[in-house]
Structures are given as structure tokens and as C-alpha cells.
Amino acid sequence: MPLAHRLRHLHTDQPHLFLLALMMILALLSINPLTWLVLTISGVAMGAMLFLMASGMTLTFGLMGVLNLAHGAFISLGAFAGATVMTFWMADTAEHADLLVNLLAIVPAMLFAMVVAGMVGLVFEHLVIKPVYGDHLKQILVTVGGSIILMQLIEVVWGANDMPVPRPESLQGAFIVSDAVPLIGGIALEKFRLVAVVLGLAVYGLMLWIIDRTRIGILIRAGVESREMVEIQGYRIHWLFLGVFVAGSALAGLGGTMWGMYQEILSPHMGDEMMISVIVVIILGGLGSIRGCFYGAVLVGLINLYVGFLEPRLAAVATVGLMVGVLMWRPQGLIPVIKV
């Protein structure tokens, strides 16, 4: 198949891959290849963390039609909850460089963050979201209000000041690729970013497996198409909504923990500050689409790093510009979820 034909095929059928390839090729033409490689890995790592933070929001919007603007507060909550466990654990093992011991500190922190964010999500859905299903204007109003309350509660529990987060010893610094390795010898790859890539890919794979291969995934996809028909089959859609909302909140908590450790400093408003990127990611990918969310997050991560390297002042503009450009090309996003 000729290259031009292949590109046209990719442009029409796989717009996310086409855009990804286009962006990487344009960056490669403008940046030194080794720097490009480091920026690409860093961009994918940032995309992985963005995916963790955004996937819950796209899921709740896709299935429930709920625009939860308090999602950022769940990111903050997860970051603080995770940091609390990290601080407690690191008090004894701060100098411990053993990777296994360090990973053992991260895993309970992430689990605790997910449990806390999920439990608060359970209460939040019952008190704030449930009364406003189907009314987007009220959803915006009550979730903004709920977000303010959650952030105030974070300040009550953890204080209003910024909080430093210890990063485990073995996840600090970078791997230096040996000069003996051809082509990529000498480049530095930040360890934590590699962990973020692995975790992001693992969560993405797990979510795709659940959505594509399990009964609960079939139910979620069916619910996105028609809630009424799901009920007619005998399933209580509200239990499904509740489960998805709790899972979405837990994912926000997980993303918050990773983002907090990456930043190494937390503030109650850190989740809110991420909301612009999160919203760009889910609009770019197609509201409600897990695959779209993943590729949207990687694209936002990459454009941030590439443009940030070439002209730092344009990084934020480029992110929004990417979204505007994609929406003009494909108004439903890169991988839309079709509702009937």
C-alpha cells in the first residue's frame, strides 16, 4: 500500500494515531534526536499521570452524563491521603535505597488514596450528584460548591499550607543510559517518570480489559448507549452509576498521589489547577471514551513538553490550541463514544 494511501487511511480511521505520529515527527524535525527521545518519554509519563487523573472524569461523564467539576478536589484529596501514608512510612525507611522497600511504600500510599477518595466519592454521589442527575446546569453549580467544601475539608485536616511529599530514595534521580549503548547512550531518564509510564499503562490496560472483556464492562458500555434499556434488561442503573462514580473518584485519588509525588509539594488547590488539562484531555479524546482519554492525555503531555522545550511561554497556549484544532477537525473528539 503506498505511503500516501496509508496516511490517508490513518487520518480517517485512526485519527489519534495520525495526530500522535504527526506531532512526534514534527518535533523530531525541530529538536535534537536525543533530546527528543528524553522529551518524548517525559511527555508520555506526564500523559500517563494525566490519564490517571482524567480517566475517572471521562467515565462518569460518558456513563452518567455527570459533569463533575469537583473532580479536581478528589485529585487533591488523593494526593494528601497518599502523602500521609508516604510520610508515615518514610519516617523509618527514608534512607532505604532498596527498590522493593520503596515500592512497598508507594503501593499502600496509592491504595490508601484510592480508598479515601473512593469513600468520599460514595458520600459525594449520594449527597451532591444523585439529586441533580440529568440537569447539567445544576450539576455544574453543585459540583463547584462541593469542590469548595472538599478543599476546605482538606485544609481542616491537613492545614492550609503547602505540604512537602517525600519521594522514596530509589525513585529519586535518573537512570543514565550507558554511552556504550548505540544511538541513545548518555541520555538521562527520570526514574519516577518511568514508574508513572508503567503505572499509567497498567491502569489503561486494566481499564480496557474491564470495559472490553467483563460483564461489568459490557454493562457500562450499554449504559452509555441507553440507560433505559439497561434497566429493561433487569439491572439497576443507579448501582452501576454509583460504582462508576466511586471508581472514578478512586482513580482521581490515584492520579493525585502520583502527581503529588512528582511535584514533591502539595496544596489543597493542586487538583483544581490540573482541571484545565484534565478537561482538555477528555474533550480531546471524546467525552466518555477511555481510549480517547489515554491518547488525549499522551498528546497533551507530549505537546506540553515539546513546545515547552522550544518556547516555554507557549506551552499552555499550545495545549488549548491542540484542543481547538482537534475540535475543528473532529467535533466529537478523537475517539467519540456514540450515544443513541
Partner: peptide, 12 residues
């Protein structure tokens, strides 16, 4: 459910 396969419609 048009986005689900025939099999998935029946599983549900």
C-alpha cells in the same frame, strides 16, 4: 445496543 456485539447483547 448498537455498539455491543450480538453476543454481548445476549450476555447482558
Amino acid at each position: 445496543f448498537g455498539l455491543l456485539t450480538v453476543r454481548e447483547n445476549l450476555i447482558l
